[in-house]
């Protein structure tokens, strides 16, 4: 009797587990189907648009690569592409560099209400509409604005766009950094100090490598959000700074559907390429983290 009990218990447990899994799949299915189907159909539609030509506001069928040639060779379009990449890279760099010490301090605050207040201050930008925030920056940077004197000429130029975008993306950069800093093994920074490493060396040899995955995740998120930003560059760029998202919008307005489609796909490609690149980087960081774990690698 007593000997037989474990066997059925095990099967029951196993059966329970498969059932659990099935329920989980069932719960995920609608959302996943929605995301995948809509995303895929839109991408396919865009691909088909980008290879057709448009005549008097109507798409005509024949296969044509002229749109892609225009998107990738026309100097104006290339300039837009380059601006998008440059703004994206600069905003990502600045945001992550600013977010890192913020995340660090957030974890070090002992008093709960100070921590709560800091959290609120850092994450408050998310609570306000992007359009409102951008107008706020326009007021600050504009003629007679609080920063208009110091940062003269930033409004309606790239620096103004970058400044406002950094502000918008900062909370998103803090999240992944907080998570990875929280996972820092206890004592390693003290050990580094104790072994004679001054602060900068501790940062370079211990803190940054051990939080690399968080830095990469944070950069991925900020870059993806920045290159697809529309409202902030439109408002603060004042028409002088044009990024891909705006260009897509303009082309749609001018009923140049194929070019809009090609540029939208380009935007997607950039985001995916950079995500992949960062993933590579994060795996590199992980290899440093774990490579010898796989056994005797030497």
């Amino acid at each position: 009797m007593t000997r037989e009990t474990p066997a059925p218990a095990l099967t029951k447990e196993g059966r329970g587990r498969t059932r659990e899994r099935r329920v989980a799949y069932a719960l995920v299915a609608p959302g996943a189907a929605y995301l995948v189907l809509i995303f895929l159909s839109i991408v396919l539609l865009l691909v088909s648009y980008s290879f057709r030509t448009e005549q008097t506001s109507r798409l005509i069928a024949p296969f044509d690569t002229g749109t892609w040639a225009e998107a990738l060779s026309n100097p104006y379009n290339l300039a837009v592409l380059w601006t998008t990449l440059r703004v994206g890279a600069l905003v990502t760099l600045l945001t992550v560099v600013l977010a890192y010490p913020i995340a660090w301090c957030l974890l070090r605050v002992r008093r709960w209400w100070v921590a709560g207040l800091l959290m609120f201050v850092i994450f408050s930008p998310i609570l306000v509409s992007v359009v409102v925030r951008s107008y706020g920056w326009m007021l600050l940077l504009g003629h007679g604005g609080l920063l208009g004197g110091v940062l003269r000429g930033w409004l309606y130029h790239e620096p103004g766009v970058i400044l406002a975008l950094v502000h918008v993306e900062l909370p998103f950069a803090v999240f992944p950094l907080l998570a990875s800093l929280r996972n820092l093994p206890p004592g390693v920074l003290e050990a580094a100090a104790d072994l004679g490493a001054p602060p900068l060396r501790r940062l370079r040899t211990v803190l940054l490598p051990l939080t690399a995955s968080g830095i990469v995740a944070s950069a991925q998120l900020v870059f993806a959000l920045t290159v697809s930003a529309f409202a902030t560059p439109s408002l603060l760029g004042g028409g002088r700074v044009t990024v891909l998202a705006q260009s897509v919008y303009q082309n749609i307005q001018q009923l140049r559907w194929p070019l809009a489609a090609a540029q939208a796909l380009l935007l997607l490609a950039i985001a995916l390429a950079v995500l992949a690149l960062f993933n590579r980087l994060s795996r590199y960081a992980d290899v440093r983290h774990r490579s010898p774990e796989g056994g005797d690698s030497r």
């Binding site: 093994p185 004592g187 050990a191 580094a192 490598p209």
Partner: peptide
């Protein structure tokens, strides 16, 4: 106490 070795 826990060694605090550098895991990376």
């Amino acid at each position: 106490q826990q060694g605090a070795l550098f895991p990376h």
